[in-house]
Amino acid sequence: MKNIIRITLLMLLGGWFVACSPAFQVQNDYDRSVNLKQFKTFRVEAEKNITDDPLLGSDLNRRRITEAVTQAMEAKGYRLDESNPELVVRYLTDVKDRQQVRSNNTMSPYWWWYGPQNNNISTYSYEEGRFIVNIYQNRANKMIWQGWASGKLKAPNKREDRATMMQGIIGDILHTFPQATSDTYSTEIGTR
């Protein structure tokens, strides 16, 4: 009886972890010739000359994404500077219709005896969303880092969960962006 309870609990926990696993795949790329740890200030804005999805690109979602990017960058030690930042963090979103084709081949190893079986083919349509974060060096106006998350879009059930969802996605994208380093030289000079 105890083994059955343990197995049931393990299956429930396994199902919970699978259900809570992120639906978005995150990747990034960066300019290896630039020392990303030299920057300390940033500004956030939407990417220019991009036509946004009417839902993901709405003013409400732009504010959510801006807040999520600001939170993630400040958590890494960067300071928001609207007037003269070292980095400009731009974001964009897009949605594409996708289809997945599934084949359920019911061919039996005994087809010669029972005859050929049917091959069931089904299609599944869904929307794939992408959240893209581009980081530019402000002086050179040159992209130095890009991160993106793509996956099946599923709107949260509660309105307050939308901000949490955006924070999670943007946090995952910026996870590999380096922490801001403290200026050790200025603190040593100030203490002498």
Rank of each mutant, 00 (worst) to 15 (best):
K2H: 10
I7A: 12
L10W: 14
L12K: 05
L12Q: 07
L12Y: 04
L13I: 15
G14H: 06
F17Y: 06
A19Q: 01
A19V: 04
S21D: 00
S21R: 01
A23Q: 08
Q25S: 08
N28L: 00
N28T: 04
D29F: 00
D29N: 07
D31H: 05
R32S: 13
R32C: 02
V34L: 04
N35K: 03
K37M: 13
F39V: 06
F39K: 02
T41S: 09
A46S: 10
A46L: 10
E47P: 00
D52G: 06
D53C: 02
D53M: 02
P54Q: 03
L55E: 09
L55M: 10
L56F: 04
G57S: 06
D59W: 00
D59Q: 13
N61W: 02
N61Q: 03
I65P: 02
I65Y: 02
E67V: 03
E67C: 00
A68V: 10
V69N: 05
E74K: 11
E74P: 01
A75I: 04
A75E: 14
K76Q: 10
K76D: 09
G77L: 02
E82L: 08
S83E: 14
P85L: 04
L87G: 09
V89L: 04
T93V: 03
V95R: 09
K96T: 13
K96W: 00
R98Q: 15
Q100D: 13
Q100G: 05
R102N: 14
N104E: 15
T106R: 11
T106Q: 13
M107G: 14
M107C: 06
M107W: 05
P109E: 12
W111Y: 13
W112G: 11
Y114T: 14
G115E: 07
G115H: 05
P116H: 09
P116V: 11
Q117I: 03
N118F: 09
N119C: 03
S125Q: 11
S125I: 03
Y126I: 12
E128G: 00
F131D: 02
I132G: 07
V133F: 00
V133A: 07
Y136K: 08
Y136C: 09
Q137H: 08
Q137K: 08
Q137E: 15
A140W: 06
K142V: 08
K142T: 12
M143L: 12
I144C: 08
W145G: 01
W145K: 02
Q146C: 08
Q146P: 01
G147K: 02
G151N: 04
G151C: 03
K152C: 01
L153R: 09
K154N: 15
A155V: 13
A155S: 13
N157V: 11
E160P: 00
A163G: 15
A163C: 03
T164M: 11
M165R: 12
M165V: 10
Q167R: 14
Q167S: 14
Q167A: 15
G168I: 05
I169C: 06
D172L: 10
I173W: 01
I173N: 02
H175S: 13
Q179N: 12
Q179C: 00
Q179G: 00
T181K: 15
T181P: 00
S182C: 04
D183Q: 07
D183F: 06
D183T: 06
T184K: 09
T184P: 04
Y185I: 11
Y185S: 11
S186M: 08
